Amino acid sequence: MAASAPTMRPTLILALLLHIPLAARDIHVGKDVKTIHEAIKAALPGDTVHLEPKSYRDYAGFYGKKGEPGKPITLDGHGATLEGSDPLDPARWKETAPGLFTNDNLTRLDDATIGRWFFLFDGRMQLMGRTSKGKSDPLKKPEDLQAGEWTFVKDPTREKPPSRQIYGTFHIKLAPGQTLAAANIFAPVRSAGVQFGGDNAHLVIKNLTATHPYNDGFNIHGDCRDVVFENIRAIECGDDGISAHESAQYRVDGFVSIGNSTGICDTGTAQTSYNNVFMERNVGFDLYFLNKGRYRITNAVIFSSALNPFMVTSGADERCELEVDNMLFRRLKKPHKALISATSMIKATRLTMENIEFDMRGQSQLSNCVINGKAEPAGSTGADTAALMRLVPEAEAVGR
């Protein structure tokens, strides 16, 4: 009688399976999983999460998410927009005077959120002269509001220390006879479009727009390594278009920042690089770099109308460094100075600055730069402005 084949033990089968590489997967939101959160949570090294080219009232959160070297986890938006606002629910508001509508409990708030707040009136971002960084107008009294304006009245009696949560009433003014249901008003209810927390590594986020959160379009906290952003846009965000914090390290290739409180704001000990950048209509700052970070911008066009266009600053025991190569920085409003603080440094090559000059309190290394029509250092040829202008998207250049 022939001997039977030996039975393979389960532990040996498992050991062999562990050495078989798993094929990278494509995870489609809306087809394979319902939400962006579920897709990111399920993604393993080498996997790609796919969005549809549409608007999502959602955000993408990465919290301790890691791919592997050579096998990143990728989020490909395929042109998707992460929308941070939702339409107002008229049932939650009451008309307290002709055209004046109020809400005592719109959302959870703190002072920082109120400092970044806005409403969208029929698609128009209404900041009421306020910005998260820089000088802001005081909030109006409800009785002083004009049609298409809003305000917030704080109620300290409802606060519960040590919680930082604040309470109060939002007021919105509409034109006589207009109903809230017909006014097409949206409020920012999400804090970011893309958000990082904890330790993240080996990630790619691309082909994605973040718009209308009350904080940052791309809010990068914690520690991250080998993280790449490609072809991303931040449009009309309550705070920064993109912001690196703590010890984040990433690079961006293709970034558009329009109508945000700050175009780019990086801080802590972050190390970031931005290539192929276009900015306009930012409110508080265009470029704001702080603390002990090392930052780099290449191939950029910035049309500046912000209150404070350009700042590199650090504390007495810190050193902030910014490197610039091939950038056109054109100031569209009244002339303003770009501050480089006493403990900071800028290295610039092929930088053209128009209607703006340096307040150079720290160190600088300038090569082939043109500042308000003057070569720096004397005799240099300056930046190739024609080449820089080719970076401007055709749609953004029309009618300029």
Score class of each variant (00 low, 15 high):
Met1Ile: 07
Ala2Cys: 07
Ala2Gln: 14
Leu14Gly: 07
His28Ala: 14
Val33Cys: 02
Glu38Leu: 04
Lys41Gln: 13
Lys41Phe: 02
His50Leu: 14
Arg57Thr: 14
Gly64Ala: 04
Lys71Pro: 00
Ala80Ser: 08
Ser85Asp: 11
Asp86Thr: 15
Pro90Lys: 10
Pro90Asn: 10
Ala91Pro: 03
Asp122Met: 02
Arg124Val: 15
Met128Ile: 03
Ser136Ala: 13
Pro138Asn: 06
Lys141Val: 05
Asp144Gly: 11
Pro161Tyr: 01
Ala175Tyr: 07
Leu180Lys: 09
Ala183Leu: 05
Asn184Lys: 15
Pro188Gln: 04
Gly198His: 07
Ile205Gly: 04
His212Ser: 10
Tyr214Phe: 14
Asp216Asn: 14
Gly222Asn: 03
Gly222Phe: 01
Cys224Asn: 13
Asp239Gly: 00
Asp239Pro: 00
Asp240Tyr: 00
Asp253Glu: 15
Gly263Cys: 08
Thr272Pro: 04
Met279Arg: 08
Asn282Glu: 06
Gly284Ala: 06
Arg294Trp: 06
Thr298Gly: 03
Asn299Asp: 15
Phe303Ser: 10
Pro309Ser: 13
Val312Cys: 07
Arg319Phe: 11
Asp325Met: 09
Arg331Val: 11
Pro335Ala: 12
His336Pro: 00
Ile340Val: 15
Ser344Glu: 04
Asn355Met: 10
Glu357Ile: 03
Ser367Trp: 01
Lys374Ser: 13
Glu376Leu: 07
Glu376Thr: 08
Ala378Val: 13
Ser380Asp: 10
Ala387Asn: 13
Leu388Trp: 05
Arg390Gln: 14
Glu394His: 10
